[in-house]
Design a protein around this nucleic acid. Structure first.
Lengths: 333, 333
DNA sequence: CTGAAAGCGCTTACAG
DNA sequence: CTGAAAGCGCTTACAG
C-alpha cells in the first residue's frame, strides 16, 4: 500500500492539516512538531500524490510541449532546453506531436481540456494556429517558439532572422560574391520572409540586385536544395554563391554542386542556416548562421514558468541573436 | 468556471453516477438517457478532469520516458516512436532527462513516487541502473531500450547487434578487405561487446585475426574516430577498412583519413553503425548497419502498454533486426 | 436501469 | 500553534 498523508499524521501524532503545513511550509508550526513530522516523512518515505495535490490545488505543476515532429535535426536541442528549465523548477513536461494529423490534434486538445498541464510551449505544427489560438483565448498560457505566422497574439521567442540573413550577405560580399542563389523555406513562414529581407537588403545597399530567377522557393528539404542548383545549372543562370535558409537544403545544394563538378568554395560559396550537427560534417563543412536552439527552449520555458508564477508575459517577442559560424564552404575573405 | 460532471448531471437531469456510466460505457444505461447525457456533454464541451479521474481510479494514463539526453542524433526517432504509440492508446508521455546529474535523478524518482505516471520507458542514462532497478522492484513497470548492461531483470527491446557486426565483416570480406580497424564504443556497453563478437567471429571463420592493435576502444565520439585513425597512421599499423560502432565516430575516421590523403573507399573502406541522418551526408556517404530506432521506440511503448493492460511482459528481450545499408564508403563488391 | 454515499489523497478556510 | 470539516472532480460498491 502506498503511504499517504494520513499515515504520516497518525505516526507523528498530529492532524493531516499539520502535516500539510510542514510539507508546504505554510503557516506557523511549532519547530519541534515540524521536526517530528519531517522525520516521520523521511522514515516512511512519504511523497505526496501529484494527482491529489493537483486536484486539491487546481494546478498540476506540469507544462505541455507541442511540436510538429521530433525528428528534425534541431528539435532535440530545443526540447533539452525546455526540459532542463522545467525540471529545475520542479515541473514535469508532457510531450505531444501532431505526427498523425487531425486525430493527433483532437487528442491533444482533449488533454488540454482535461487540465493535464498548466501551460504550453509550442513549436507550431502546420495548421494548428487556430486551435492554439482558441486554447489561448480560453485561458491556457502559451509561449511560441520560432513563431511561424508572427501572430502577435502570443508571447514568443524568436531569433534575429533578419540580421542573420544580413550577416550571410555581408560575408558573401566580403568574399567577393555578388550573384548569390537563395534557397528559401516555405514562403508563409515569417522567418523565411525576414531572412530574405535581411539578405536582400544588404545586397541592395551594395548595389546588387537579387532577381527572381536567383530566388528558389524551397521547402527546407535536401531535395529542394539539389533541385534549386540543378535548375539554375540547366538554364545557365549564373551564380557564385548559395544562401540556403536551412542547413539541410544547403547540404542538398552542396551535393548537386559536387555532382556537377563545381568546386565549393572556389566556384561557388555556400552558406546555410541553423548550424545543426550535420553542418560540420558536410564536404566541405558548412558556413552557417547559427540559431541558439537550446537557449530558445530555455527562454520559452522560463517565460512560461514566470507567467504561471504571476509575472505578466512580455508583450513583444523575446529575440535571441544569431551568429555566423564560418567554415570552409564560405571561408573568411 | 470549468464544467464538471455535476454540471452535466444537473443539466441532463440524472445523477453523476449515470454520467460516469455513459462516459465509461460501463454498466447498463437506458439508450435514451445515454443519448441525452451525451448531447449535454457535447453541448457543454465537457471533458473529465484527468487529475480527478486519476485520483479516483488510481492510475494516470500517462507513461514516463527517461533518457540520458535529447541531443543524440538517433534519440528523436526513438522518442517519436514512443510518443506515437502512447498517444494512439490515449496515454500522455512525461519526458525526463538526467542531464543534470544526481539532482535530476532525485527529481525524477520524486515524480515516480508521486505516481505521476503508470509505467516507464527508459534509455538508460549512465549510473542509473540501480535507481531504476529499485523502482522496478517497488512495482513500477519498466521497459528498457537498447539495454546497456544487459540486465535480465527488465523487459527490454534490442537489436541484432551481433548479427549487425557480422554483416559488416561479411561485407568487407566480400569487398576483399581483411585487415579492418575496429573503433568500438564504451566497453561496458553490451551492444559494443556483441558487435565486436559478431564482427570478429566472421573474420575468424574466414581465417583472419583481429589483433588488439587494430581494435580502438572509443567512446562513440567523432574525436575518438579521428584519433583511432591518426594513431594507426602514426604507428604504421596497416588497415584496409574501418568498422566503427557508430556513425559519428565513423565520420571522425572519414575526416582523419581524408586529412591524411587516404582515399575512401579505394584505400580504406569505412562502415558505421546506426544510420543516423548524418550518414548519408558524409563524404563519401557512409555504408552503415541500420538500427530501426523508431520501431524500437514503438515496440518498447507497446510492450509497456500491454503490460499495463495486464499482458505479462516478455521474459526475454524483443530483438529487432539490423540492416546493412550500402553507400559509397564501402560499396558492394 | 438508476442514485445516494463513500472514498481517492490532498489543501484550505474557519474556529479555537 | 493546531485540528475538524468541507471541498477538489471523479469512480465504485451497494442498494433499490
Amino acid at each position: 500500500m502506498r503511504v499517504t498523508i494520513a499515515d504520516v499524521a497518525r505516526e507523528a501524532g498530529v492532524s493531516k492539516t499539520t502535516v500539510s503545513r510542514v510539507l508546504n511550509t505554510k503557516g506557523e508550526v511549532d519547530d519541534r512538531t515540524a521536526a517530528r513530522v519531517r522525520s516521520v516523512i523521511s522514515q516512511l518515505g512519504y511523497v505526496p500524490s501529484s494527482r491529489a495535490v493537483g486536484l486539491a490545488r487546481g494546478n498540476s505543476r506540469t507544462v505541455g510541449m507541442l511540436v510538429p515532429t521530433l525528428t528534425w535535426p534541431w528539435m532535440g536541442e530545443v526540447l533539452q532546453g525546455v526540459v532542463d528549465t522545467v525540471e529545475a523548477a520542479g515541473y514535469g513536461m508532457l510531450l505531444f506531436t501532431c505526427n498523425r494529423g487531425v486525430e493527433s490534434v483532437a487528442r491533444f486538445t482533449g488533454q488540454v481540456s482535461a487540465r493535464a498541464f498548466d501551460g504550453l510551449v509550442v513549436v507550431e505544427p502546420e495548421n494548428t494556429l487556430e486551435t492554439i489560438t482558441g486554447l489561448h483565448r480560453k485561458g491556457l498560457p502559451v509561449v511560441l517558439i520560432d513563431d511561424r505566422a508572427q501572430s502577435p497574439a502570443f508571447p514568443s521567442v524568436a531569433t534575429t532572422n533578419r540580421e542573420g540573413g544580413a550577416s550571410a550577405a555581408r560575408h558573401l560580399l566580403a568574399g567577393g560574391r555578388s550573384r548569390p542563389l537563395v534557397i528559401t523555406g516555405p514562403s508563409h513562414f515569417g522567418c523565411v520572409h525576414d531572412r530574405l529581407a535581411g539578405f536582400g537588403g544588404v545586397l541592395a545597399e551594395a548595389g546588387h540586385g537579387l532577381p527572381p530567377a536567383r530566388v528558389h522557393h524551397g521547402d527546407f528539404t535536401e531535395a529542394a536544395g539539389c533541385l534549386a542548383v540543378q535548375q539554375r545549372l540547366a538554364t545557365g543562370e549564373e551564380f557564385d554563391a548559395v544562401f540556403a535558409h536551412n542547413d539541410v537544403s544547403a547540404a542538398g545544394a552542396l551535393r548537386a554542386l559536387r555532382a556537377a563538378g563545381r568546386r565549393v568554395p572556389d566556384d561557388v560559396a555556400v552558406i546555410g542556416f541553423d548550424d545543426v550537427p550535420l553542418a560540420s560534417h558536410t564536404d566541405p563543412p558548412l558556413t552557417t548562421v547559427r540559431q541558439p536552439m537550446r537557449r530558445m527552449g530555455e527562454t520559452a520555458a522560463r517565460v512560461l514558468l514566470d507567467h504561471l508564477g504571476g509575472t505578466p508575459a512580455p508583450g513583444t517577442p523575446v529575440v535571441l541573436p544569431t551568429e555566423l559560424v564560418v567554415r570552409n564552404s564560405a571561408p573568411a575573405a
